[in-house]
Amino acid sequence: MIREITIGQYYPVDSVLHRMDPRTKLFGTMVYIVSLFLADNVWGYAVAALLLAVVIRLSRVPVSFMVRGLKAILFLLLISVSFNLFLTDGEEIFRVGFLRVTWEGVRMAAFMAVRLIFLVMGSSVMTLTTTPNQLTDGLEKSLGFLKKVRVPVHEMAMIMSIALRFIPILVEETDKIMKAQMARGADFESGGLIQKAKSMVPLLVPLFISAFRRATDLAMAMEARCYHGGEGRTKMKPLRYARRDYTAYAVYAVYLGVIVLTKFV
């Protein structure tokens, strides 16, 4: 079940989006998120949906992969939708006990759902078309100015990149340890909250130990390959803007403009 988390997973095909500079994609994702909160009517969301559809098409990643990322936020989605649905003042449609459902609530809940779904799908497009390394490269370079105020940008980017690489490995490991303890009669499902928390100890201790062992091994392997921080390091894939990136920035500008216009429709 935990295997299905797709956020942060790269889908290896060749497309315009894959070849785009990660900074362009990062900025684009930010623009998109901002636009989702700017838009406040059906027209705005229609434009956002159109852009998303075009981008997904361009990415050549199957839509099913984007949708799968939504599972991870299902709970969050449910909560925010119900909050908006029940706690918005306005013209009442019906009432269940102290919960009132209003037209405004339905509208807000629908917009909230659309926002969240688009937000996750939009960011999935970025993570699915950008290798975590490119992504961290992009972040490192975009935030490079922070180095001047002694923020360890390179180190943070490296940590992120490594974390992303080890997530699937640790997920698999969790699955294995869980099964191994179940073979020793462990029960991870029944019992109350305290019982459940206690039953996690035989899972968490081995997992931590394994994570530490991997970390030590990896640190040694990195050192053996002459890693010594960001200083004097060159890049195999240095970031360079190409024409498609300038085009993308132009598209962002136009898109934001259109979104703002829809507010006056």
């Binding site: 790269y10 091994d217 390959r225 390091r233």
Partner: peptide
Amino acid sequence: DNQIIGNVVEEDVGFGPENIG
């Protein structure tokens, strides 16, 4: 598993040369 740093094969192979500039 514990010595591959890159998330893509070729990027991992490039890690060492990057480090030595």
